[in-house]
Nucleic acid binder design. Structure first.
Length: 826
DNA sequence: ATCATAACGCTTTTT
DNA sequence: GCGTTATGAT
């Protein structure tokens, strides 16, 4: 055997031997795991087992280093070794230790790996799966979000950029209130200079790595007044951020990139350190994140990015799909692997999703497929209005629950949070437990922001923004004029407000309130001392007490204040959780870091069994047995803003693709002909995305043309067709809408006859009078909740609120008319 | 300082 | 249509 032939066979046998560790993967997944060296683009379709691949890839790197992907053959390898490997590779038994020794080439130390994700949730999942697979070794792997990785890097070296390592992080609303203030102070018209749009411009500039100085200078070279004024606002914003020793979310990444670009010794350290860089959700990266990733990977050039161009839905936040589309040209010698086998959805659903996304141009081109059979076709239901739409969804869910399904198998996805209202009502009417994800978030609540502001002020004395928030909260008689004086003096002296506070006694204009100011300064000072000496949870209790915040809430126990108190306590449980996780390392600064980067406490716990409602955006990365996409109408989804804008329309279509591919077994597309939104009723028509679905993969109601239309108008919506809504309780069993006519196999109870041809009167025109269908003491059976007894009937206009004590699920409150459809007297 | 009323907006939003 | 927010009056 020549050396050449020996090496060839050795390399092949080594790769096959390593592959035996990953037998559960499909071929493409395996390739992705074994391809360790150089730039790699992993196009991972929805549900293709992406995280599994990432975890196994890391396991491979730790165990075998580049063994599966190198031409290097150890000098000392013998023909006997080769024979041994070949036998093992062919399926034989072998000593694992010896195989490991023969296959490994530079196994990598865990701390040389960095895996970056976008969300804390993804990072946490990655971490826990790594721990499960690798045990303690996993602790040293940097598995975290872009932002937390940057914080970690900055805490070490930000002093090189003239910031103090104890910097605080401003979240979006902090930035917003700062910008509001700046616009007011610069005397700019808040219509033309809307704080949000100004911040968007700044964020874009930061993404292009344009400093305030550079931006303002460039703006001044133009005649564009607006641009020049935004330049001024940007300058002021940067100056204040610097003075407050604060960084916003963009800054975290921008400054890290700056640090790596301008400071070779820092760059070298990280480039040498990280032998392998992994980036998840690459289609969502913006320019800065691209820079950051490529800087990190600049040393060893082993960068693996995972993403799906078809799932890029955050362009409006600066994500650029270009990063993934041009990965191959950005990285010389890049390899691409496509994961197209889907393990989540059944055939029809996948085919429907494929047929929608096919209408986009500029794709990498991918077609998902599955081995799991055709399953059920997605169903289109057209409701008369949003009430009926919601009632339809509730009905489907109840029917499924009646067959033993779990509530949490169902998700309702909508385009915007405002749509959740109608759904909420329907769920309440029917006693369906639900949970809304998103909307007003925990950390956005005033009382939480207040408590966090106290902590920030204690932690960072120069954080004026936070200090101003709480200086008179609860009221301590420090009024607006005093605050204004304070600020003036701070600006002229060029020092943080807190310093002026301590000096108040010696300043004339402040003399009248000096005592109050001094007391406040003392309070913060005391708390600062306490933070260093007592455990964090005790510190927090002390804060609640000494600041008088708790007392303020307790003073008047309104419903609102009760919730606030609960929230404030909830924050404490965050602290306790943080302490548990970090043990002796738990510090105030550490906690604040974590909180600043944690928008939502993991409010989505899968333990509680309830239907989840959320926007399609938030649904990314999740999966459900049944998915309801509501509001599938032109003008809602796609939204008015994207109609006529080809790029936005494509993004909208990708969003549709994301939403559809969340469904494992059942997918419902629901729309309403008339919808009341923002106080106006508008007529809509079925979303173009629905029309794009191949007819053989969807159950549609018969063409609404002449058959159902009014007076022969072919696309008229106002057909007065009987709907789902509970308004005509006497008529249940009929008028369920189109969809059952095509039989999706999921109607419940009595099957309706063919749809009525047409109805002249508008639905719900004359509200029916209250007719009691149940009385207290009735023994009843509900299709989803089982048997029970009616304990209370409370008439409400033309309906009634029932209280039913169910044998299995306990007390439920139901609206009579809705309940009548699913519940019968025994 | 606190309450009331008027005015305003209003996609989506991993950090 | 509703919930937040800015402003003005007491």
């Amino acid at each position: 055997m020549t050396r050449e032939e020996f090496e060839k066979r050795f390399i092949a046998a080594r790769r096959s031997s390593i592959a035996r560790d990953f037998e559960k993967l499909n071929d493409m997944q395996l390739q992705a795991v074994l391809t360790t060296e150089g730039p790699l683009l992993l196009l991972a379709g929805a549900g293709s087992g992406k995280t599994t691949v990432l975890i196994n890839r890391i396991a491979n790197l730790l165990r075998y280093g580049r063994g599966s992907d190198t031409d290097l053959v150890p000098e000392q390898a013998t023909e006997e070794d080769l024979a041994y490997l070949e036998k093992y590779a062919a399926g034989g038994e072998a000593d694992r230790e010896r195989v490991g020794r023969l296959c490994a080439v530079d196994p990598v130390e865990p701390w040389r790996l960095i895996a970056i994700t976008f969300t804390n949730k993804a990072a946490d999942e990655m971490k826990s799966r790594l721990e499960r697979m690798l045990g303690e070794e996993a602790y040293d792997i940097w598995a975290m979000t872009f932002h937390s990785a940057c914080v970690r890097i900055l805490r070490r070296d930000i002093d090189r950029l003239g910031f103090d390592p104890s910097f605080t992080i401003y979240d979006t609303s902090d930035s917003q209130s700062l910008m509001k203030r700046i616009i007011r102070e610069l005397d700019l018209d808040d219509k033309t200079y809307n704080y949000k749009s100004v911040l968007t411009v700044i964020s874009k500039a930061k993404d292009e790595m344009m400093s305030a100085e550079a931006y303002a200078a460039a703006a001044d070279r133009t005649t564009d007044i607006r641009k020049r004024n935004i330049g001024r606002a940007y300058m002021e914003y940067s100056r204040r951020m610097r003075d407050a020793n604060a960084l916003d979310f963009d800054d975290l990444i921008l400054f890290t990139v700056r640090l790596l670009l301008d400071h070779p010794e820092v760059r070298d350290y990280y480039q040498r350190r990280f032998r392998y860089v992994l980036i998840d959700e690459y289609q969502d990266t913006n320019n800065l994140q691209y820079m950051f990733a490529s800087l990190l990977a600049g040393g060893h050039k082993n960068i693996c990015v995972v993403g799906d161009d078809d799932q890029s839905i955050y362009k409006f936040r600066g994500a650029t799909i270009e990063n993934i589309l041009s990965f191959e040209s950005n990285y010389k010698g890049a390899r691409t692997i496509r994961l197209e086998q889907n393990y989540r959805s059944t055939g029809h659903i996948l085919a429907a999703a494929n047929s929608v996304i096919r209408n986009n141009t500029g794709r990498k081109g991918k077609e998902l497929w599955t081995e799991s059979g055709l399953g059920e076709k997605p169903v289109l239901y057209i409701a008369p209005d949003e009430r009926d739409e919601a009632q339809y969804v509730a009905g489907k869910i109840l029917a499924e629950a009646a067959c033993g399904g779990r509530w949490s198998d169902n998700a309702v996805l909508y385009r915007m949070n405002a749509q959740s209202n109608a759904m909420e009502f329907a769920f309440k009417r029917n006693g369906i437990p639900y949970k809304i994800i998103g909307g007003t978030r925990f950390f956005e609540r005033a009382e939480i922001k207040d408590m966090l502001s106290y902590m920030c002020t204690v932690q960072n004395p120069s954080d004026d923004l936070r200090l101003l928030r709480i200086i008179n909260q609860p009221p301590r008689g420090i009024g607006e004029t005093t605050v204004e004086n304070l600020r003036q003096i701070a600006v002229t002296r060029g020092v943080p407000i807190f310093e002026v506070l301590q000096d108040a006694g010696r300043i004339d204009v402040l003399s009248r309130s000096a005592a109050k100011l001094g007391k406040f300064a003392e309070l913060i000072g005391d708390m600062r001392a306490a933070a260093e000496n007592i455990p964090l949870d005790e510190f927090y209790d002390m804060l609640l007490e000494k600041t008088g915040y708790e007392a303020m809430l307790r003073e008047r126990m309104t419903d609102e204040n009760v919730t606030r108190l609960e929230n404030v306590q909830e924050l404490k449980s965050n602290i306790t959780a943080y302490m548990k996780e970090n043990g002796d390392d738990a510090t105030l600064a550490g906690f604040l870091d974590e909180i600043a980067l944690y928008t939502d406490i993991d409010q989505y716990d899968r333990n509680s069994d309830s239907v989840v409602m959320m926007t399609m955006h938030s649904a990314k990365g999740l999966e459900f047995k049944s998915v309801f996409i509501v509001g599938a109408e032109e003008g809602i989804f796609p939204g008015t803003r994207s109609i006529g804008e080809p790029d936005e329309m494509e993004e909208e279509r990708r969003l549709c693709y994301v939403a559809m591919t969340r469904a494992k077994e059942r997918l419902f597309l629901v729309c309403a002909r008339h919808r009341m939104l923002f106080g106006r009723t508008t007529a809509g028509k079925v979303s173009r995305f629905v029309d794009e679905i191949d007819r053989e993969h969807i159950n549609r109601p018969p063409e609404s043309g002449n058959t159902f239309a009014f007076g022969g108008e072919s696309d008229a919506w106002d057909t007065g067709y009987g709907g789902y809504s509970g308004d005509r309780y006497g008529g249940y069993g009929r008028g369920r809408g189109f969809e059952d006519a095509v039989s999706d196999g999921y109607g419940y109870g009595r099957r309706p006859a063919a749809p009525r041809k047409k109805t002249i009167s508008r639905p719900a025109a004359a509200p029916a009078k209250y007719v009691p269908l149940f009385a207290a003491g009735d023994r009843v059976e509900h299709s989803a909740f089982g048997k029970g007894v009616v304990t209370k009937v409370q008439p409400t206009g033309n309906d009634a609120l029932l209280e039913v004590e169910f044998d299995a699920v306990g007390k439920k409150r139901l609206m009579m008319k809705s309940a009548a459809k699913y519940m019968t007297k025994l």
